[in-house]
Nucleic acid binder design. Structure first.
Lengths: 237, 237
DNA sequence: CGGCCGATTGAGGCTTATCAAGGCCGGTGG
DNA sequence: CCACCGGCCTTGATAAGCCTCAATCGGCCG
């Protein structure tokens, strides 16, 4: 992990914009104070890998700022995007009990700031603050539900449906500046394909088609959803 | 849920064969005692549904005996098997925070005995016994890892690979009586297809092929793995 | 013995991946 | 400032893979 760069500084957790996030929202001031002393801040530039499948798992990361994709790769290097992480999300918990290795990789899509907390510290904290464990449980449950839904979609949807769904996923992960405005997430066609579970050419064709129907509009890699409901209908299973 | 049938009786948890299961293994005697008083035993015959996607979530179930499939259905009734649950496993935790509805269905494959514990009781227990929450966290993490792997496979494997993988999944879930003996799990071709993410005809064709190569051997719905390593190689991604 | 349900097998057609060619930037260097 | 270059996107042709449909087979139960 990169060290904090010159000129930047680590703020106290109680000042942090993500202290109301899923996992930390019920933390007492005392708990936040402890975390604040234990955490290490890290900066990753766009394209840099934050953690890697198969490497030894050291702790968890809170995303403070930025955009992160979490993905797995098969032996041919083909990658598959499992989900995105945004400010307030936690990554680094998909580690195996047995081998203590990360089971997925994470990469910064844009410049990203994270707070790192090693497992040992975190586990000690949960002993004193059980609400942390409960919140983490909730977080896991949400991840699990999302992934179950995704598996169902992968198994039953056609390619156009999967692409439509991928665009909606991109929207719900990072949103837009307003209705019919471009998504706040810029991905290559290959990345959209890895998210949808198809190929970049198919993505291109489906998006061209959606464009012709004025359901979405593209300018280069920017995608705007013009007819939200129609897109949702396409992705309905 | 069915009431305990005449002649059967609810044993104390400390006598139960699954008290060393994933979630309960670190419970103190005191904790087990409390659970024992709160639990309700339920019996489900083969083919009976234990819980249903979309219905209101009331609590969790420990599988004491039997075989359970956990699945989701799309709007056309097409189902997709997410995983199996065996004695010692916990089901009923895939519930939404927002709507408090189960997000997947569970069905008894063979006659199955479960212990039911309502959420409220369970949550109160976790307050007094934080180790319960930690174990549950572990359990979730394992489920999540498994599902991530499954999603990757769905997205990248060919049909023959997915079928080979489905057979291996069946084996690791319920095992066999010994090498080259039939799997302890009997599914229809349609169910295997729902597990692999393909159609029953494709499953039939792939299994015929594996049979011809003497990698597996079938007698009706019984499947025996003759050449384990070859099967694993087929399913390698 | 007949009927029924699931498994098997084959044919056909559709969907999707692959391959290849061409176009559109954005960056670089003259 | 312009020309070139490389990467990514687009588009079309082709072929492979997969699903669907339909016919047949086989076992099980009444």
């Amino acid at each position: 992990m990169k060290k904090p760069v010159a000129g930047s500084h680590s703020i106290h957790c109680s000042e942090c914009s993500i202290k109301n996030c899923s996992v930390l929202r019920h933390c007492t001031d005392e708990c936040l104070d402890l975390i604040s002393n234990l955490k290490k801040v890290g900066y990753f530039i766009a394209g840099q890998r934050i953690l890697m499948e198969g490497s030894s798992a050291k702790g968890i990361y809170f995303i403070e700022k930025g955009q992160v994709k979490i993905y797995k790769s098969d032996s041919r290097g083909q990658e598959f995007i499992l989900r995105f992480a945004r400010p307030g999300d936690v990554i680094g918990f998909s580690a195996s009990d047995a081998t203590n290795e990360y089971l997925a990789s994470a990469l910064a899509i844009i410049d990203t700031t994270v707070c790192f907390l090693d497992y040992k510290s975190f586990m000690e904290l949960t002993e004193h603050f059980p609400e942390l464990a409960i919140e983490l449980l909730r977080f896991y449950r949400a991840e699990l539900s999302g992934l179950e839904q995704k598996a169902l979609k992968l198994a039953t949807m056609s390619v156009p449906q999967k692409v439509a769904d991928a665009i909606l996923t991109m929207e719900s992960a990072f949103g837009t500046e307003g209705p019919q405005k471009p998504l706040n997430l810029i991905l290559s066609r290959q990345d959209i394909a890895s998210l949808a579970g198809t190929t970049k050419e198919q993505v291109s064709k489906v998006i061209s088609d959606l464009n012709a129907q004025r359901i979405v509009e593209t300018h280069g890699k920017l995608i705007s959803i013009l007819q939200h409901e129609k897109l949702q209908n396409l992705a309905r299973i």
